[in-house]
């Protein structure tokens, strides 16, 4: 990715800056200057808004064949997350056993490295998510045993 392409969205990625529409009282992420629900009236009525960074897992999947640049994580958890303010976002959930992530779990944002242009290129940082509560590993052990019996 070119330097300006990443740079212009730094605050969106670093600090979860999205938009709040004063007409429909709804939140949007990533930042947009136009709210399709409100049509052209929304232009000029979209304010920057910093999301709290807390949310809930809508659906999670364990990725075994990693996306380019994510090879060192495999297997890892990708999820659609609903932020507490409403909008949804696709993100990796890190620092957890990926198979333990389930719909409805609470997550919070963390600052992580997203990737790099190349070994000599610019580094990309931004937001990922971790589980707010540590998952009960005893439960997952029971699951594993059940699976083996099946």
């Amino acid at each position: 990715m070119s330097v300006p392409r990443f740079w212009r969205e730094l605050d969106t990625r670093y600090n979860l800056i999205g938009s709040y529409c004063k007409i429909t009282n709804t939140y949007h992420y990533p930042r947009r200057s136009f709210n399709p629900e409100a049509g052209r009236d929304s232009i000029g009525s979209m304010e920057d808004y910093q999301f709290k960074g807390t949310g809930t897992v809508v659906t999670a999947t364990v990725v075994h064949q990693a996306q380019t640049g994510y090879e060192m994580f495999g297997p890892y958890c990708m999820a659609i997350i609903e932020l507490d303010e409403g909008p949804r976002i696709t993100s990796q959930i890190v620092d957890c056993e990926p198979n333990n992530v389930k719909s409805g779990m609470k997550v919070k944002s963390v600052f992580r490295k997203l990737g790099e242009d190349s070994e000599s290129g610019i580094l990309h940082y931004g937001t990922k998510f971790i589980l707010s509560e540590k998952t009960n590993t005893e439960d997952s052990n029971e699951d594993t045993i059940e699976n083996i019996e099946l």
């Binding site: 999947t61 990725v63 064949q65 996306q67 990708m78 696709t90 990796q92």
Partner: peptide, 29 residues
């Protein structure tokens, strides 16, 4: 890996693929 990433470009490259979502993972969801 390049052909897989190329397929990912049919989704939102910046907010899905670059975030780690493979094309298969979106269909898995």
């Amino acid at each position: 890996s390049e052909s897989s990433y190329t397929v990912s470009m049919g989704s939102d490259e910046q907010w899905e693929a670059k975030a780690g979502a493979t094309f298969t993972s979106l269909h898995a969801i």
